[in-house]
């Protein structure tokens, strides 16, 4: 088994952190994992993305041409990376700030109001990345929930228990928002849940 993921958005949306959380969670459950950020002459507000691979076997390339799961947190990322989802793969769209819909019909597309849900659950849109992580986990459960929680603990340990708890709430809110959601539904479940 190898799972190749791409996370993309604006710099500052926590896309690199989201990817690190996935890699950390994979490590927590003793999988091999790689995390590779896009790096370049990036600027604040510019685009950022990272590739996360995890596998129960030694990982070769930390990059791929196509991905099992793609998370897009902003519209330029949707335009750039919709084509990079493997046929039958998963595309998660942050519908809080992406108003258009995906065009492809050979993939499972899910919509999550990540920013709005983060505001209501965590009181802070910064948690949108963890909402997205929960949403992806719900529709494509490739990691263990306990491993993701352990990753959140590791990542936010230096900020204290309150922040850890807030992020675990955000993770579960993202998961619950996608519960029983069929792919390719126009209405974001998160919006209804709110």
């Amino acid at each position: 088994m190898i799972e190749e993921n791409l996370i993309a958005g604006f710099g500052g949306q926590g896309v690199l952190s989201l990817g690190k959380l996935m890699a950390q969670a994979a490590m927590e459950q003793n999988l091999c994992a790689t995390w590779l950020p896009s790096y370049g002459p990036e600027m604040r507000g510019g685009t950022a993305n990272c590739v996360v691979c995890f596998s129960d076997d030694e990982i070769g390339a930390p990059v791929a041409a196509n991905y099992d799961a793609v998370v897009v947190m902003n519209q330029p990322s949707l335009e750039k990376f919709e084509s990079a989802v493997k046929p039958g793969g998963t595309l998660l769209i942050n519908s809080s700030i992406i108003s258009v819909r995906a065009k492809r019909s050979d993939i499972d597309v899910f919509y999550i109001d990540a920013n709005d849900l983060a505001e209501s659950v965590a009181g802070n849109a910064k948690a949108a990345n963890v909402i997205a992580l929960g949403a992806l986990h719900a529709v494509r459960p490739r990691l263990e929930t306990s491993a993701i929680e352990a990753a959140l603990k590791t990542a936010f340990e230096y900020k204290g228990q309150k922040v850890i708890d807030m992020n675990i709430r955000a993770l579960h809110a993202g998961m619950e928002a996608m519960q029983d959601t069929e792919p390719n539904q126009p209405q974001a479940t998160a919006a209804r849940a709110r």
Binding site: A33, W35, Y39
Partner: peptide
């Protein structure tokens, strides 16, 4: 190379 320098692994 740049990829090995920038990537993370356990």
């Amino acid at each position: 190379d740049g990829v090995l320098g920038q990537m993370m692994e356990p």
